[in-house]
Nucleic acid binder design. Structure first.
Lengths: 233, 233
DNA sequence: GTCTATACCAGGATAGAC
DNA sequence: GTCTATCCTGGTATAGAC
């Protein structure tokens, strides 16, 4: 069996730096952003998004005033409004771009792996590593989902169900092939998803206990596989 | 082995009706509530708390205006302020009273059970059933924790760690007695806690799939026990 | 105890100078 | 592109009649 992907390797391969993410975000939202020069726009978007994630994750989006944001980002109110047309727009842009990147990365990582057991491991590792790299985005996204306008809200929920579906599909395939024992796949998928989310929702807890992503991933895989391959009762 | 506690039984035994909770809340906050007559106070607190939970769980506490609250509760702005001295006070009261009830109930349920395996089952059932009865409170509490003032915030985190500690203690006792195999108890505790929380955080999902609390509880117990008693690898 | 009316201010948003 | 100055809505909170 091949070695599990290491976090450092994952991080280097993807290069999801704040700058890269914001350049992407800029290119995907040129209509609503009133700035032309890419360099200028990206530089300031980094400041804005960093500040917004910081403030929102401390006090929530609704409680963050744009005055606070402008101070934290080091830009004037007027300047801010060159990057989004309203406060709600800002929420929408960040949310949307977040889920976009997540789905793109998660879909990309599983290709080429055939064995269900390896696929499951790979999926779990990818999710945890990605949420480690983009922790503030994930946390923000989770906490602010319900504040989105109806249409965006629906999409966010679909994205939530998307990863769960990936997990369930893998498990069912493993069952068909006789590798995993029969279990309630929907419930198992839900619980795995919850465990994956806990990693970025309670980061303070794991940091305090000095648990690394790799340890957490290894534990989860062990726990789940033990269930899926234990002698049927 | 005895039968697991049924949800209906649990619900009936505790009788945590909104009225009972608000009566309790009133008696514990007489100094800050400007109403004297218990009957009047409780009746209106029920309206206020119900309305607040409904609005907050849809849009978050910060985004809920007191004008909206007064409309939803059917009381005037002036009347509201007879029940709390500021918006933040309202948050504090509800939060505090929620965790109080939770700790009281959870601590009470495990007494008299000796076998670690039965204790673990009982603890999981109690947590799930309690969060089922008080779902809006639990959801509210989880989502608004970070908006509390520093001191209250700390207490909320302690409450979060309290249930986890209960689980870990039980597992360690089972290991000492040789009933459970050696595993990383801290991580297992964290994952179980995450699974327990998922039940009230994603209620829409389980409702849509028509999963009952009892099913969810049974699945979780099966999953966890399978890990804890499987032949050591 | 509850209501209506009102004070007062913070927040989102924009205009126009540079 | 960015800043400062300003507008104005809608929020929290209270006074005083009933």
């Amino acid at each position: 069996m091949e070695e599990d992907l290491k976090f450092k390797t994952f991080e280097r391969q993807l290069n999801l730096s704040m700058e890269a993410l914001c350049r992407d975000l800029f290119l995907g939202n040129r209509e609503s952003i009133k700035i032309n020069k890419e360099e200028v726009a990206v530089k300031n978007l980094v400041k804005i998004v960093n500040a917004a994630l910081k403030l929102c994750n401390r006090q929530g989006f609704a409680a963050m005033s744009l005055r606070d944001l402008s101070k934290e980002a080091g830009l004037s109110m007027g300047a801010l409004y060159a990057y989004f047309t309203s406060k709600d727009e800002l929420l929408r842009i960040m949310q949307q771009h977040g889920s976009l990147v997540v789905m793109r990365v998660l879909q990309g990582q599983a290709i080429g792996i055939d064995d269900p057991r390896a696929r499951l491991r790979s999926c779990i590792h990818a999710h945890l590593y990605l949420s480690e790299v983009m922790q503030p985005w994930f946390y923000f996204s989770y906490m602010e989902t319900k504040n989105l306008p109806k249409e965006e809200h629906k999409k966010a929920i679909e994205a939530e169900l998307f990863t769960e579906k990936m997990l369930i599909d893998i498990i069912e395939e493993g069952q068909d092939k006789g590798i995993f024992k029969p279990v309630q796949t929907a419930l198992l998928g839900a619980v795995i998803k919850a465990a994956l989310q806990d990693w970025y929702l309670k980061r303070w807890k794991y940091a305090r206990r000095k648990v690394s992503v790799e340890e957490y991933a290894a534990f989860l895989v062990d726990f789940i596989e033990s269930y899926l391959v234990s002698p049927s009762s």
